[in-house]
Amino acid sequence: MRFAVFLGAMLGGVAAMAADYVPLPGGTFNSVLPADGQNAPARIAPFAMRAEPVTNAEYLAFVRTHTAWSKDQVPALFADGAYLSHWAGALSLGDAVLADQPVTEVSWFAARAYCEGEDARLPTWYEWEVAAAADAHRTDARADPAWRQSVLDWYGRPSSAPLAPVGGAANVYGLRDLNGLVWEWVDDFNALLVSADSREQNGADKARFCGAAALTLQQKENYATLMRVAMLSALKASDTTRNLGFRCVRSL
């Protein structure tokens, strides 16, 4: 038993080191959140993104070497009470949790710390969005109703069933599971500034948000992506949820 755990840790460690990063060219991109709140495109520098979300096994390997991030040690500032609550123990997954499922119930602080340990960082929203706009053949499939429906279908499925393992179909870059498996943290989740009451239109409450006021959901036909923005903007940095994981990126 001990040995198995040890072996698992070794394998986890190997997996973490072997994490596959895929280069993306960057460039300008018409985000659902215009850079200036009006219509300016986002400018994205070239970066490399993890092909798959971080798994339970990978995160377990991290926690074993960074025990300050185990659920019995992490301060409440960095993770809420549900942090890794699906794991059987502080340093073990248990039978109900699969090694190759994406890790969830992780906070933004925890996700950030993991990526640092992998010599990487969390993606910005624009990096994540440009990567997820692709389908199997195109770098930007967002105008295709089929792409939109596939995103929406996941929203429409209740999450009563266990999460699938990582390794879904690859998009044109070779990235997997961006849509349809879990929500993913982005580094600037607290920069999305979507008003908590989505009906407040531009300038409704200037004092609350300086400058160009709260970003409101501009291109309403892009609601599939905007629902992800709404989810991210509902979060505090210490929050964890059952359907929220992450992946890392590196600047090139």
């Binding site: 908590a196 009451d197 009906r199 989810m231 509902a234 059952r242």
Partner: peptide, 12 residues
């Protein structure tokens, strides 16, 4: 907002 802004809540 009738409470909307005060009640924006993430899963869990």
């Amino acid at each position: 907002g009738g409470g909307a802004a005060s009640s924006f809540t993430a899963p869990g």
